[in-house]
Amino acid sequence: MNTPAHRLTENKLRKAKEKVIEGILFLAAFSAVATTLAIVAILLYEASAFFEHVSLVEFLTHTQWTPLFERAEYGILPLVAGTLVTAGVALAVAVPIGVIVAIYLSEFAPHHVRETVKPFLEMLEGVPTVVYGYFALLFVTPILQIFMPDLPGFNMLGPGIVIGIMIIPYVSSVSEDAMRAVPMSLREGSYAMGATRFQTAVKVVFPAAISGVLAAFILGISRAVGETMVVAVAAGQQPNFTWDPREPAATITAYIVQVALGDLPHGSIGYQSIFAAGLVLVLMTLVFNILGHMLRRKFREAY
C-alpha cells in the first residue's frame, strides 16, 4: 500500500518530469525564433563586410552589376529590375486567372467540381521548381517564339508566365478564403433584389472581399520575387538593366545561384555580395509579406 508520503514524493518526480518535457518542447518552438535571428545575423554580418568595400550609394544607384569581373561594379539595380519584371509578368498571369478561379470556386462551382479541382490545384504547387524551369526553357519559350520570332532563347517572359501559372493556386486559395468569409446575408440581400449570380459575385462579393484579394496579390508578388530555379534555368544569368520582359536578365535569386555554382573562396567580395543581394531579397519579401498579412487580417475582422 502506498503511504500518502510516498505518493507525495512520486508527485514531485512527476512534476519535475513534466517541467523538463515542457522545457524541451519550448526549445523546439523557440527554434523558429532562433532561425529568424540566425538568418538576420548571418545576412547582416556578411553584408556589412560587403559594405565596407562598396558604398551604399553605389550599391543602390549604379546600373551595372559585375562583381565577378576584373572591373567590378556593384549596382544592384539590374538585379532588382530583373526580379521585378519577372514578378510583374507572373502577376499579370496569376492575378486575373487566380481571381476568376476564386470567384468560380467560391460562387459558381458545384460542390463536387470544387472537391475534384482543388487537389489538382494543390498538386500544381507541389511540382518542383526546377521542373518548371525545364518547362519554361524547352516548352513555353519555343511556343512564344512562334508568335515572336525575335525572342531570344533566354528571356524573362517565358519564366514569368510559368511562375505565374505556378502561383495561381496560391493567389486563388487566399482570394477564395476572403470571398467565403463574406457573410451569406450579403449574397441573400443581393439575390432578393433580383441580381444574378454573376452580378452578386462581381458587384457584392468581390468588393466586400477586396482587401483579401489584395492580400493575395501581394503575397503572390512575394512568392514570385523569391522564386529561383525557373529564372535561373530559363532567363539567362546575365545581369541586364532593362524593363523589357523579352530580354534575358538575371534576378537576385539567379545571381545567388550563379555565384554558388562557381565555388568562390569564403570571405571574398564575390562571396559577400550574395549575402548583400540576399539581404535586399529578404527586405523586399518582408515588406510584401507584412503588407499582405495586414490586409488579410483586415478582412477577417471586417465581419
Partner: peptide, 28 residues
C-alpha cells in the same frame, strides 16, 4: 506571440535565403 509571428514569417521566406543561412552557419 513572438514565436507565432516567426513561424508565419518563416513560411514566407524565399527558400534560397535558407541556403544563405546554411552557407554562413552550417558550412563555415
Amino acid at each position: 506571440d513572438l514565436i507565432e509571428i516567426n513561424v508565419t514569417n518563416l513560411a514566407g521566406v524565399p527558400s534560397i535565403v535558407y541556403g544563405l543561412l546554411a552557407l554562413g552557419l552550417f558550412v563555415y
